[in-house]
Design a protein around this nucleic acid. Structure first.
Lengths: 250, 250
DNA sequence: CGCTCACTTGACGTTGCTCAAACCGAGTGG
DNA sequence: CCACTCGGTTTGAGCAACGTCAAGTGAGCG
C-alpha cells in the first residue's frame, strides 16, 4: 500500500569492492555497500518475491510477517540494527518485511553472498551459526504460542526486549517499544485489547512503569521472570526428571 | 502398543548406493553406519545434552519436544523415515527426542559430519537446504499456533500427514497416526479432549472416516483444505493486495 | 475375567476474543 | 489559542471457544 513512497536506491553497485583482504565475518561483506533508507511503513520485500538480496539492518526496526488466507497477519519476528535478513532463504522470501520506524539498510546480492560464503572458510560457520540461532528463536516462539497465557507471553516478550536493550548498553531498565500494540498482538498471537489489558495489569501490580509514550520501565525484573513462565533462571531443580505429568495449561 | 502393525516399507534403497566415490548427499554418509534400534517410548537424546551425534531415521516415528518449567510439554515436530535430526544444532540439543513407535536409526558423529561437509562442495548446499526447509516448517507451525482455531489446526495437521503419506506412495487416502492424542495435542497446542472432539466432529460431517484404531481415511480432501484455513490451493485471488484489515480470528 | 490405558463424551468454568465506546496525544487549520 | 480530526490506545460488557474435571467406553493383555 505504501511502498511506492520514495525508493531512493542510490543505484548501489552491488558487490563491488572486496578489495584487499578476505572478509572474515558477514557484517564485513555489507560494510562497503551503500546505505538505503526506508521511511516508516515502507516495505523492503514481499513474501513470495524472488529472494535476490540479503539485507543488513543498520538502523531502525522492521517487522517480518505473513498474511494468511483470510487476511490475518502473523508477525514472525522483529529485526533490529545488526540483524541480517535473508540468510534462511532459498529462492523466494518466506515472509514480507516492512519498516516500523524510519530505517537504514544495506543490501547484498544473494548470488554474490553465496559465492563469498563458498570461497571463505570463515563465513560458512558463521552463516550456520546464524541459522541455528534463528531456529532456536523460532522454537522459543513455538513454545510461547503453544502453551503460554496472555500474561506469560507479554512478560516473555518484554524480557526478551529487555535483554536486547541491556546487551546494547541500555543501563536503566527501560525498553523502547516502537511497534504498535497491533504489531505486538500479531507477534504474540493475541489481540490488541488483551495486550493492552495485560500491560495495564502489570503496571498496576508495580512490575512495570510507563515512560513516555512508547517506552516502559521494568521495575521488578524478577516478577517479570516469574510471570513469564519460562525456566529462564529459575534454579534447575531437577524438573527434567519429573517426567511429563499434566499440569494446568495456564 | 500398535506400531508393529505391518510396516511394508519395501526396504527402499533411497538413492542407490554410490560406492567408492565421495558422498554426494547426506543420506550417503549414513548408509554405512550400523542400525540402532529403539523400542517405543525410548529416548534418543535429551534437550541440553551435548550434541555429539546426528541421526538418520531409518524406520519408525519419533517426537521431538521441550519440557518447560511447570511440566508442560511442547512437541515441536515428528520425525519420519528419511529425516535427519541434529543438523540445526550447535553444541547442545535444543530438544529431546523419543521414539513413538519401535524405531531404527543410524548415527553419525557431529565432528565427522562437519568435516565431511567442509570438504565436500556438494554437501554444504544440501545442509543449507535442509535448514531452510526446517525453518519454513517452523514458520508454518508458528502461523498455525498464532491464529488458527482448533478445527483448523487439526485439518492442517491431517493435510500435512496426508501429503506425506501420498508422497511416500500411499495411494488410498488413509493416514496413519501412530502417535497418541496427547502427542497430537501437545503438537498443536490443544488438549486431548479438544483433539478428540474435533476429529469426531469431522467424521460426523463425513470429511473423515475412522479406519481401524489408529488410522483415518480422508473422504473429502477439499473440505479438509477449506477448513484448514490455509491458502494452500485456494485460488490466489489477489488477497495480497487487500492489505491488512482485521478479520475475525476464528 | 478383570485390569489398564487410550480415547470419547458430557457438564461446567475461565480465558481471551468481539463489539463498542471513550480517551489521548499529535497534527492541522482557523 | 482553541476546535477538530485522526490514529493508536485504553476500558468495559458480553460471549464463545476451548480448557478443566469427571465419568463412561472399548481394546489389548496378563
Amino acid at each position: 500500500m505504501l511502498q511506492r513512497a520514495n525508493f531512493h536506491y542510490d543505484k548501489q553497485i552491488n558487490n563491488a569492492v572486496l578489495l584487499g583482504s578476505e572478509p572474515n565475518c558477514i557484517q564485513e561483506l555489507f560494510r562497503r555497500q551503500p546505505v538505503e533508507r526506508l521511511v516508516a511503513g515502507q516495505s523492503l520485500f514481499f513474501e513470495g518475491d524472488a529472494a535476490k538480496h540479503l539485507f543488513e539492518v543498520v538502523e531502525g526496526i522492521l517487522r517480518i510477517f505473513k498474511i494468511i488466507s483470510n487476511g490475518r497477519r502473523v508477525i514472525t519476528g522483529f529485526l533490529h540494527a545488526g540483524d541480517i535478513v535473508g540468510v534462511s532463504l532459498k529462492d523466494h522470501y518466506l515472509y514480507s518485511a516492512e519498516a516500523i520506524t524510519d530505517t537504514k539498510v544495506r543490501r547484498f546480492s544473494r548470488k554474490a553472498f553465496d559465492s563469498e560464503v563458498a570461497s571463505s572458510p570463515e563465513l560458512g560457520p558463521e552463516v550456520f551459526a546464524r541459522l541455528c540461532d534463528e531456529m532456536a528463536a523460532a522454537q522459543d516462539q513455538m513454545v510461547l504460542l503453544s502453551c503460554k497465557s496472555a500474561e506469560e507471553r507479554i512478560c516473555t516478550f518484554l524480557l526478551r526486549e529487555l535483554l536486547r536493550a541491556v546487551s546494547e548498553g541500555q543501563a536503566d531498565f527501560v525498553i523502547e517499544l516502537p511497534m504498535t500494540r497491533l504489531d505486538i498482538a500479531d507477534y504474540l498471537g493475541l489481540t490488541i485489547e488483551t495486550v493492552s489489558r495485560s500491560i495495564t495489569k502489570l503496571t498496576s501490580k508495580g512490575v512495570l512503569a510507563p515512560v513516555g509514550r512508547h517506552s516502559l520501565r521494568v521495575v521488578k525484573r524478577s516478577a517479570l521472570v516469574q510471570l513469564s513462565g519460562s525456566d529462564d533462571e529459575s534454579a534447575g531443580d531437577g524438573w527434567k526428571l519429573a517426567g511429563c505429568e499434566r499440569r494446568p495449561r495456564h
